[in-house]
Nucleic acid binder design. Sequence first.
RNA 1: GCGAUCGUAGCUCAGUUGGUUAGAGCGCCGGUUUGUGGUACCGGAGGUCGGGGGUUCGAACCCCCUCGAUCGCCCCA
Length: 420
Amino acid sequence: MSKQTIPTPKAIRGTQDIFGLEAEAFGHVVETFERVRKLYRFRRVEMPVFEKTTVFSRSLGETTDVVSKEMYSFEDRGGESLTLRPEFTAGLARAYLTNGWQQHAPLKIATHGALFRYERPQKGRYRQFHQIDAEVIGAAEPQADVELLVMADQLLRELGIADGVTLNLNTLGDAPSREAWREALIRYFRRYEADLSDESKERLEKNPLRILDSKDPRDKALTQTAPQIDEYLTDEAQDFFGKVTAGLDAAGVAWVRAPALVRGLDYYRHTAFEFITDRLGAQGTVLGGGRYDGLLEALGGPATPAVGWAAGIERLAMLVADARTITEPAADVAIVPMGAAAEAACLGLAATLRRGGLTVDMGYRGNMKKRMSRANESGARFALIVGDEELAAGEATVKNLATGTQERMALHAIPAHIAA
RNA sequence: GCGAUCGUAGCUCAGUUGGUUAGAGCGCCGGUUUGUGGUACCGGAGGUCGGGGGUUCGAACCCCCUCGAUCGCCCCA
């Protein structure tokens, strides 16, 4: 562009500047979420983007990858370790405990905003990314799981991206079920340890459930015949899962059982789910969540059942943009003043029309040809041309940009003409 | 953190085995038209070839480093 001696700073890796149509798609996702969440009476929450590091390290577990290498942590001037939130749930749980929101239990809340993880960027995966999030805290009932899932389903439908998206559903059972299953898996995989991929050999020690969703063909051969959670579900856990699936069926939400869908951390119980699309490659999960009875205790609170989900706005926006359901809003009218006197008068005209709810474009500069050209690009149905002649008569020339026909008209008659 | 592919104009890309002043389309600006857009024609601006180093008489092209992007792995709480 120019010979600069001052180098322009570049954007941070993994961040994005979202503009125009993409930003419209992004906003559409958030607006749709806001609308749907109100239908289900989820209350809005605004949260800080940073917390004490312990909020995340305790709730997520010190040894998880997220905590050990993916958090943006720093010390403030008082020497306290703070962290940009890598997820919503831990902060919401903290707020629930520190603000006494127990009084509202069961509390249905929703929020959205930026999250930060120090990861290698990929399609639909960024270091600063954005999610919408819904949680029910203080409800042990399967109805909470159902309500969240039905809401998620409705959201995807209203976004027009439900085609090609499948709800994958699993249960991890209650604590005894989960523990029995976990031990059975360890016994099973230890027998075939030599045949496992290197990653899964390590998972066997750290996070055995994760072997089940390994992509390595060597592992896949073994996971086929691995013990299933169903064999280890207690009656209570079975009953819980049955109520969730029955609720989904009653609400007309399609789902498939995904026995390999797991959550690594111990406090995950019962329901685990992901809405997965076939259109985003390796980043196919479009919305995911589950029940996390036990998290609140990890933060020093009383035993509190909770369930929730989150969805990446960028990924949803990509699907929305692919579906071509989004356009940048067109103007209703474009005003084309000619001359200084007309320009001043047109500021008044523009304000009047906008106060009346019309979308109005009026350029800052340019000759008439240029302004007409801009009027055309704005998508306006009408151009209002005001020169000295019109001004003197209290009129404007109203040009229909689609047909090219135009007529002189009194200013006060314009709103009705446009509305017609 | 690991692997692969790729960085040329605002955008999408071309650029021969290394060989003069690096091209096209779209977009942008101006003109044909100083009160009329969308079409057409004419003209113009715009490039440290991502950055640095090296090889060579000569590098957009070859080599090394680096930054970034894309795709995948790990991970996805």
